[in-house]
Design a protein around this nucleic acid. Sequence first.
DNA 1: TGTACATCAGTGAACGCGCGTTCACTGATGTAC
DNA 2: TGTACATCAGTGAACGCGCGTTCACTGATGTAC
Lengths: 201, 201
Amino acid sequence: MKPRTRRYHRTRQAILDAATEIIHEEGPDALSMRELADRIDYSAAGLYEYFGSKEEIILAVCQEGHQRLAAYMLEVDREVPANDYLYGIGKAYVRFALENPDHFLLMFSYPEAAGAPENDEMHQENDSSYNILLQGIGRGISEGVFPERPGFGLDELGYAAWTMVHGIAMLRVTALREYPLDLDAVDDQVIHNFLRGLMTA
Amino acid sequence: MKPRTRRYHRTRQAILDAATEIIHEEGPDALSMRELADRIDYSAAGLYEYFGSKEEIILAVCQEGHQRLAAYMLEVDREVPANDYLYGIGKAYVRFALENPDHFLLMFSYPEAAGAPENDEMHQENDSSYNILLQGIGRGISEGVFPERPGFGLDELGYAAWTMVHGIAMLRVTALREYPLDLDAVDDQVIHNFLRGLMTA
DNA sequence: TGTACATCAGTGAACGCGCGTTCACTGATGTAC
DNA sequence: TGTACATCAGTGAACGCGCGTTCACTGATGTAC
């Protein structure tokens, strides 16, 4: 059975890659079983050997997206002060969204496949994007960069930071998709201002 | 022709109201010409008396949404200090999203109908949500609540504030749609922390 | 080595559906004289 | 007031399309003896 398994995983991955490609090039609405099969010189019926339905494919693509988002954040250099590190992972989050806009939007249209904090499965997975963020916040707390605030601990700080970077990412891939100014530079200041607010008593 | 015109506008509005209702109750994907016509005891073909296509209807619904969002923000009491006023319109933005989640999401899926700053038509419209926000920021500047920062003037402050409230709104209507905690209370602190960051030198 | 059979990935065609849109038509209303 | 005609909002049925999914089938590969 080993060749079967190996081939199975190769084909499965090819399907997911083609689906991601379609979403990237033509948007999520353009994803159909027929076009997906065409991309890998396959028949639409054959896809059902690997996935039970179109929705299963979409969910798998979303989960892969969350893994890739986490990978962006894991690349950030940890050997810097806590606030610089937090700034770095924030920028990584935004960069993922800018480089994979439709994938990013799709991921947040299917929250059931997403890294929502109330999702137990993901909470146990240490490498989720949200947990990476939480660990960065936790490091800042233990290094004393955040003033003590009643009712505003790790979870609240994590939520605050998430909303900030998510707002930047979302606005830039929807409303400001073709904004002519240099928003990268503005984002630097926005994130720094935001962190200053969290760190000022 | 007057009765014709009056009736025309009444029916047109009824179509838009029904479309908004469907989006609110069943989500944007459930909006079809047939169901839309059924809601107002009409024929699908008749809709083409009032709109050229389904897309025209969706765009009109989005534009109405932006007007309603602006109305939420216009309701906010201006007779308070500038930072309290900014806090108020931020909360109004989030409240609109929470009370009209699918409408809110749809609005930002059709940026061509939206209040993007590069959209000239909207920039001339003083009552757009973005201009209301900009006016609030402008008031803060003239009252001296923001420290002078090179390269971080009205537009940058407006962008920063928009990303903040948009991030809260988006996360809450997608990833955190059924989050069990009291995010309203947390949002208060998040927005205050954010404003503190902007107002601290 | 050769033969008969079982397995199974992959296929082409079809099913059934809902969609946006078009079109010939209806029937009520308004107008002219 | 009555009649003939024009207007026009609204309709039912149909067109053509693309979709997700199913299914009987094919043909290559592996297995047993």
